[in-house]
Computed example of a mutant assay.
Amino acid sequence: MSILNPKKLSVEFRKGVTTTEPIVPRHYTLTHSDTTAELFLTIGLSYAYDKINPTRDEVLGKWIKKSKSYSFYIHLYVGGAFSPRVITMRNYIFRRELPLALEAIRYGDKEFFSAHPELDNSPIIVYFMSTISEFNKIENWGTFSNYNISKPSSI
Results as ranks from 00 to 15, higher is better:
residue 150 S to M: 14
residue 34 D to E: 13
residue 54 P to C: 07
residue 8 K to I: 12
residue 118 E to N: 13
residue 27 H to Y: 09
residue 128 F to N: 06
residue 126 V to G: 03
residue 106 R to E: 13
residue 78 V to W: 03
residue 36 T to I: 03
residue 150 S to T: 14
residue 7 K to Q: 09
residue 122 S to P: 02
residue 71 S to W: 05
residue 93 I to N: 01
residue 127 Y to R: 04
residue 6 P to Y: 11
residue 14 R to K: 15
residue 80 G to T: 00
residue 9 L to H: 06
residue 110 K to G: 01
residue 68 K to D: 15
residue 25 P to A: 12
residue 24 V to A: 04
residue 33 S to E: 07
residue 132 I to K: 07
residue 91 N to I: 00
residue 20 T to M: 07
residue 143 T to F: 08
residue 81 A to D: 04
residue 58 E to A: 12
residue 71 S to D: 09
residue 124 I to T: 01
residue 97 E to C: 11
residue 101 A to R: 10
residue 59 V to M: 12
residue 144 F to G: 05
residue 98 L to M: 08
residue 29 T to E: 02
residue 52 I to D: 00
residue 131 T to V: 07
residue 51 K to A: 09
residue 23 I to L: 06
residue 143 T to S: 12
residue 47 Y to D: 05
residue 90 R to K: 15
residue 38 E to F: 11
residue 68 K to V: 03
residue 40 F to R: 14
residue 139 E to A: 15
residue 30 L to Y: 12
residue 129 M to D: 05
residue 26 R to Q: 12
residue 47 Y to L: 10
residue 136 N to H: 14
residue 72 F to G: 04
residue 78 V to G: 04
residue 141 W to R: 10
residue 62 K to P: 00
residue 99 P to G: 15
residue 31 T to K: 02
residue 112 F to E: 12
residue 143 T to K: 13
residue 112 F to S: 10
residue 68 K to W: 08
residue 83 S to R: 03
residue 59 V to E: 07
residue 92 Y to D: 10
residue 8 K to L: 15
residue 144 F to Y: 13
residue 112 F to K: 06
residue 72 F to K: 00
residue 78 V to Y: 06
residue 144 F to T: 05
residue 136 N to K: 07
residue 136 N to R: 06
residue 124 I to N: 00
residue 107 Y to P: 01
residue 65 K to D: 08
residue 48 A to W: 08
residue 65 K to T: 02
residue 67 S to Y: 06
residue 15 K to F: 04
residue 144 F to A: 08
residue 93 I to K: 05
residue 135 F to Y: 15
residue 50 D to P: 01
residue 3 I to S: 14
residue 45 L to N: 07
residue 121 N to Q: 13
residue 129 M to G: 07
residue 85 R to W: 11
residue 138 I to T: 15
residue 49 Y to G: 10
residue 48 A to F: 09
residue 55 T to Y: 00
residue 113 F to P: 08
residue 111 E to F: 02
residue 11 V to W: 14
residue 8 K to D: 14
residue 143 T to W: 02
residue 101 A to N: 10
residue 107 Y to I: 06
residue 3 I to C: 05
residue 144 F to K: 01
residue 62 K to F: 15
